[in-house]
Structures are given as structure tokens and as C-alpha cells.
Nucleic acid binder design. Structure first.
Ligand SMILES: Nc1ncnc2c1ncn2[C@@H]1O[C@H](COP(=O)(O)OP(=O)(O)OP(=O)(O)O)[C@@H](O)[C@H]1O
Length: 667
DNA sequence: AATATAGAATTTTTT
DNA sequence: ATTCTATATT
């Protein structure tokens, strides 16, 4: 099914132009040469100042570039940077774009407001928390924190476990979708999690308790940040006007990955002027698990009347050969919207599909090919390895280390969410706030001889005071609890006099025996603790440290992070999701085996299969010159009970001229 | 009855 | 690698 986008204000076909020469006196006062740096359609988007504008275009067509130049243009036109709001999807994208704008124009661009939706929401909420009856020092919860709360609540309401009850991460997924799609929990369960309809009521009841807990304790999860901003703007006419007038020009990148909640926030922020520019590509929508829907971008003209739609059709990133392949891939989507995309970059190199007999061979191939690319004068930082999920690159990482090829990894499990770091953070949180029963629970459960029921009886005694009447503690358990209380109580009096890193050091000293007892691989985890202490060293206030880590954690994942000096050249390894919007000279897509990519998870739903396809499209369109797709044939899949041996179905039946097949033979 | 532990099952993607 | 479950231990 192929549809056309409803166009309210079609871009005019290029007509023949008669050029009037510039005369000295009318020479443009602009510092940036917009006319030569941009093509016609891009220029039109950049100089359109007022009203809603939607730039919808394929990968590499310069959407982000257009946004960057528009920021510069607005500033050159005399708009104050503080009146421009630039919302992006990731922190990386935000800083990248502002630094690009700074290069294009000057450092006025750095004063532009914005960042990610969540960080922007955080700033607004801290400023106006009173209006929501929130403490302004509210805590932001990460995934693990939320799971701990769910655990706590479920334990309270339903001490007996139920059969086929969703696990905590699934429960949270349901709640998150419900908030982000602005749909009742009940509907989400019935539509997307029908296997849990039998315990629907319980899930809803736990949700109520969860919301109640968050309110009572002034803690917010990621979704609350957005939700509360929306409520704030909806219920405070005056504030809505103030903020809307402050942010005169609003720009949103990667609009295809916004959800209805975010769309509402944007609508409210733009309510006074409708000066809003959204930029995106429905074919690159890959965040539906967060409630994003690619139809949102197509509905933008409905949300904002008289939207001017601008399409960009020339790709400046990739060679024609790569584009031939990516156009072929995306044409396989079940539901899509017609778009033209062409390139003028010629190159004899054709993308390749490489079969490896196992993951080791896949890793060997990539390493060897990387070394050859380096010989061709391509730098390591111009090469990237992309994978469907973070685990996929394990063998490769080992091989890279063996060959001393430096790499940095993005995406996958977060440093801050590993169990041992969470343990340390829980101690710190209790020091700061002895009422934090979730962290207290976590700490108590680490102790010998203490389980769920002791925790329940002990919490009322030590909640809020780290120096309780010892006689109240159950006598048999007191011995293991008291040392912990003493340590934390002592430190709680030193939060102002001691540096955060010193406090962290003492906690680590206390925790180390527990770590050694709990994990076989404690040596590796111990290094993480040291790194955590190093991070603490960059703060002078413990509370700031903890709250910063929640919203803006160090952005590379567990490994690679402290192995590397930031100025060294390094290969990038990334999940496809984290690579969005970026580009490299040479790209390897690994693990492109059917059952992993697309994931077996998506086999029974056409919509999910389409999203996997878009993911492949996003991955392949990151490449400028060289694209290699590899698949090992030794992966075993538990759910399907078979060895996965076929290449991704998205690459099936593609002509050899568009995608070369390579076989590897060993010397 | 509460806790510890061994074995089985399950695992995407991110703010 | 982590989380859940069933069984052993105290
Ligand atoms: N008019 C132009 N002339 C020359 N190069 C351009 C032009 N427009 C964009 N480019 C280059 O094309 C590349 C892709 O641009 P950009 O990242 O802005 O595309 P995009 O549409 O945001 O891509 P994606 O959809 O993948 O995020 C960049 O290297 C950019 O510098």
C-alpha cells in the first residue's frame, strides 16, 4: 500500500531561473552563505521564518543540516538565542547540532535553549515544581529504581505470587506505553499484551499504588517528566503563555520518533505563535517500544493548520550504490509513504553481504577489513560497527582487544544500572534521605540472614533515622544490621564536610566484602566501583552527583568507557538505535541473521516486522562509502529451538549488482 | 517460616 | 547475564 502525503502547500517544481547579478550596495549582510551551502529546498526551509513547517525527507538528505542552518539564520536575523528552543532525541544529537551551528556561525549558537525532551522537561519542572506541589529537589528514577518500586509494591499488595504474572520489567513497559501513548492501561494490556488480560485488574491496581508512591516521595520516572510538563502547561494558562512567548521559535529533530505525549507538549509550547519546525523521516521511525508512531509525523499537518511541507530528495551522504540498496530495502515495507531519494556520488564499490561460519570468523573478517581500510587512509573514527543488540558484538570486542584496536561502545546495558553500582547508589541515597525505603530495602537485602520478611518488620523502625533504638530490632538479626547503620549514620553527618568522592570511598570500603561474597566476577566489578569514585570526584556536592547521574549518565556503556582517553582515535561500536542521525565513511552491520535481525520476537506481527525493516534501513543509510553486512551461521535460538543459519530476510532476493555476496575462505 | 542456593528459563531497542 | 522457581537448609 503506497500513499502520498497530504500536502497543504506543495513545493513548487524548480523553474528555470534568470539570475540578477548582485550589486555592491545590496550585498547580503549575512555572514553565512546560505545560498551556496544549501540546495533550493533546504534554503526554503531555512528562510521560512513564521508558521508551522514540516521537513519530511529520506536519510542523508540534510535535514539536520537544515535545522543547524536555520538556527544560524534566525540568530543572524536578530532573534535572541534564548528564544530558540531546539529539541532533539538524544543528548549526543543536541550537542552535535549546537556545535555544528557554532561552526557555521559563532558561539551565540551555544546559548540556544533545548536538549532532549527529558532534560528540557527536567529544567522546567525544577523551576516550577511549586505549581505541581512537587518538591523541587525531586529525584529522577531510572529503570532499575522503578523495578525496585514495583517489587516493593507487589510484595505489599500480593504477598502470594500469581501464576503467569508479568515480570516487573513488563509491567513497567505497560505503564510506560500507557503514558506515552496517552491510552488507558487497560487498552494497552488488551491490545499489546493480551496474554496478561487475566490479571489486568491487578496490574491496574499496582499501577495506582505505583503512582501513589511516586507522588508521596517526590520521585519521577522518565515518563513523568513529560507528563508533568504537559499538566503544568495545561493547567496554568499564565505559565503556558510565558513559556510559549519565551520560546518563540521551536524546532524538533527526528520527529518520527516522538509520541503523542511529546506532540502535546510541543503543541502547548507553540500555542502562542505556531512557529514550529519539525524534521524527520517516517521510514526511520524505530522507537515504537517507547510509544512512538511513524504516523505522528504524517499527522503533523493536522495538528498544526497551514503547515508548509518541504521535501528534500537529494542524498549527500551515500554513494549511488549504497542508495540503490537502501531504496530496495525500504521498498519492502508493508506500509510506506512514497518518497524520492537520489544521490550524485559515484563509486565503483558495491555493498557486500558476507557469510561467516561462526561469530569468531565474523570478528576476524571485520578486524582484517578494518586494518585494510586503515591502509587506505581511512581513520578509525570514520568506521563503525552496528548491531541489532549490544550482545551481538561480544566476540568482536574480544578480537579487537586481542589485536589492540581501540573501540568505544555505545548502547546496551548502562554503567549506572549495573547491580553493583546500584548498590553503592542505594547507600548514598539513604545517607542523603533516610526516608528512601526503596534504597533501604535494597541495602538490607544485601545483608546476611535478611530476606523480604525481616525487611518488612525492620523498615518501620529505621525509616527516617539511621540511629534507632537498637533494642527494637529483632534480636537475631540485629548483629548484621547494626554495622550497616553505624557506617551510614556516621557518613550522614559528614555530607557537607567531606568530598563526595571520600564518602563514596568509605561506602566502597564497607561494601567490598559484600561484593566479593555475592559475585564470582568481583574483580571486574571492583574496577567499576573505582570508576564510580572517579566520577564522584568531579562533583563537590553529593546530592548533585546523584541527581546528575540519573538523567545524564555517562553515555557510553559499561565497557570501553574508562579504557580510552577521549582524544584517542577509536572505532565505534553501537546499537543501531544509538547510531541514529550519525554517519561514517565505512559501516559494518553485524549479526544480520534471520531470527536476530529481524528478531524472532517480531515474527508474528506485521507492524513490528516493518519496524525491524526500518531499523535495517537506518543502519544501512549510515554509510557514506563502504557498507558490509555480515552474518554468522552458528547462532542458536532458544525460543525457536534451532540454529539460525539464513541471512536476514530483508536481504533476500536482492540482485548481485546491488548487493555482492562474499564467501570467506581461510588461508 | 524465612532464607539460601542451585538450576531453569528468558533475553531487543532508550530517555 | 539476569531473573524466576523449585528445593534444601537453618
Ligand atoms: N546541500 C548540501 N550540500 C552538501 N552536502 C550536504 C548538503 N546537505 C547535506 N549535506 C551533507 O549530507 C550529510 C547528511 O546530512 P544530515 O545528517 O543533515 O542528513 P539527515 O537528513 O539529517 O540524515 P538522517 O535522516 O540520516 O538523520 C552530511 O554530511 C551533510 O553535511
Amino acid at each position: 500500500m503506497t500513499k502520498e502525503i497530504i500536502t497543504t502547500n506543495e513545493t513548487k517544481p524548480a523553474r528555470k531561473k534568470y539570475v540578477l547579478k548582485k550589486r555592491e550596495t545590496t550585498r547580503s549582510n549575512y555572514k553565512v552563505n546560505y545560498e551556496t551551502d544549501l540546495n533550493q529546498a533546504q534554503l526554503e526551509a531555512v528562510i521560512s521564518k513564521e508558521g508551522p513547517i514540516l521537513v519530511i525527507a529520506g536519510a542523508g538528505s540534510g535535514k539536520t543540516k537544515t535545522l543547524t542552518y536555520r538556527v544560524a539564520r534566525l540568530i543572524e536575523d536578530g532573534i535572541k538565542p534564548e528564544n530558540i528552543l531546539l529539541l532533539t532525541f538524544t543528548k549526543k544529537a543536541a550537542s552535535e547540532m549546537l556545535s555544528r551551528a557554532t561552526i557555521v556561525l559563532d558561539d551565540r549558537c551555544e546559548k540556544v535553549a533545548g536538549g532532549t525532551f527529558h532534560s528540557f522537561a527536567n529544567i522546567i519542572l525544577r523551576r516550577y515544581s511549586k505549581l505541581l506541589k512537587l518538591k523541587n529537589n525531586f529525584t529522577i528514577l531510572d529503570k532499575t529504581d522503578c523495578e525496585d518500586i514495583i517489587n516493593h509494591i507487589t510484595g505489599q499488595i500480593y504477598p502470594k505470587k500469581e501464576k503467569r504474572f508479568p515480570k516487573k520489567s513488563t509491567i513497567l513497559e505497560i505503564y510506560s506505553k500507557s503514558v506515552n501513548k496517552e491510552t488507558p492501561t487497560k487498552t494497552i494490556i488488551e491490545d499489546e499484551f493480551p496474554q496478561f488480560t487475566h490479571c489486568e485488574e491487578k496490574i491496574i491496581e499496582i499501577h495506582k499504588a505505583y503512582v501513589g508512591y511516586k507522588r508521596e516521595n517526590s520521585v519521577l520516572d522518565y515518563d513523568d517528566l513529560l507528563l508533568y510538563v504537559k499538566l503544568l502547561l495545561e493547567n496554568n494558562e499564565g505559565l503556558r503563555k510565558t513559556l510559549s512567548n519565551q520560546y518563540q521559535y521551536i524546532m524538533v529533530d527526528e520527529y518520527q520518533d516522538t509520541n503523542t505525549l511529546q506532540a502535546d507538549v510541543i503543541k502547548l509550547l507553540a500555542s502562542e505563535h505556531n512557529n514550529i519546525m519539525a524534521v524527520g523521516d517516517d521510514a526511520q521511525s524505530i522507537y515504537s517500544f517507547r510509544g512512538a508512531n511513524f504516523r505522528n509525523i504524517l499527522d503533523f499537518p493536522k495538528l498544526f493548520e497551514n503547515t508548509k511541507i518541504i521535501k528534500l530528495e537529494q542524498n549527500y551522504r551515500s554513494t549511488q550504490n549504497i542508495l540503490k540498496l537502501t531504496n530496495t530495502i525500504i521498498s519492502k515495507a508493508k506500509e510506506k509513504y512514497a518518497k524520492t531519494l537520489f544521490s550524485e556520488i559515484k563509486s565503483p564499490v558495491v555493498p557486500a553481504l558476507i557469510c561467516a561460519k561462526d561469530t569468531q570468523m565474523e570478528a576476524d573478517f571485520i578486524c582484517q577489513r578494518i586494518l585494510e581500510l586503515l591502509d587506505e587512509d581511512i581513520s578509525l573514527s570514520d568506521i563503525c560497527v552496528l548491531a541489532r543488540n549490544a550482545r551481538m558484538s561480544y566476540s568482536l570486542e574480544i578480537e579487537l582487544s586481542k589485536r589492540a584496536i581501540p573501540y568505544q561502545k555505545f548502547g546496551g546495558p548502562k554503567f549506572m544500572e549495573t547491580a553493583h553500582i546500584k548498590d553503592i547508589v542505594a547507600h548514598l541515597r539513604v545517607i542523603i534521605n533516610p526516608d528512601d525505603i526503596i534504597s533501604l530495602t535494597r541495602i538490607l537485602l544485601l545483608l546476611k540472614g535478611i530476606g523480604a520478611s525481616t525487611v518488612n518488620s525492620v523498615i518501620p523502625i529505621i525509616k527516617g533515622q539511621l540511629n534507632p533504638n537498637i533494642k527494637l530490632l529483632p534480636s537475631k538479626k540485629a548483629d548484621s544490621i547494626i554495622p550497616m547503620l553505624k557506617t551510614l549514620d556516621k557518613l550522614s553527618h559528614l555530607t557537607t564536610s567531606k568530598k563526595p568522592s571520600d564518602i563514596v570511598e568509605e561506602i566502597i570500603a564497607y561494601y567490598r566484602p559484600i561484593l566479593k561474597d555475592k559475585y564470582d566476577d568481583f574483580a571486574k566489578r571492583e574496577k567499576d566501583l573505582d570508576h564510580f569514585q572517579y566520577l564522584a570526584g568531579q562533583y563537590s556536592n553529593l546530592e548533585d552527583f546523584i541527581s546528575d547521574m540519573a538523567l545524564e549518565p555517562p553515555d557510553s556503556s559499561v565497557e570501553g568507557m574508562y579504557k580510552r582517553n577521549s582524544d584517542d582515535e577509536a572505532l565505534t561500536i553501537s546499537t543501531i538505535h544509538s547510531a541514529k542521525g550519525l554517519e561514517w565513511d565505512s559501516v559494518f552491520i553485524i549479526g544480520a541473521v534471520d531470527g536476530r535481525f529481524p528478531s524472532a520476537y517480531s515474527f508474528n506481527s506485521e507492524e513490528e516486522m516493518d519496524e525491524e525493516l526500518r531499523l535495517m534501513y537506518v543502519a544501512a543509510t549510515r554509510a557514506k562509502n563502504n557498507l558490509y553486512i555480515t552474518y554468522p551461521v552458528d547462532m542458536y535460538d532458544y525460543s525457536m529451538n534451532m540454529v539460525l543459519s539464513k541471512p536476514s530476510r530483508f536481504l533476500n532476493g536482492i540482485d548481485d549488482e546491488i548487493l555482492e555476496m562474499w564467501d570467506i575462505t581461510e588461508e
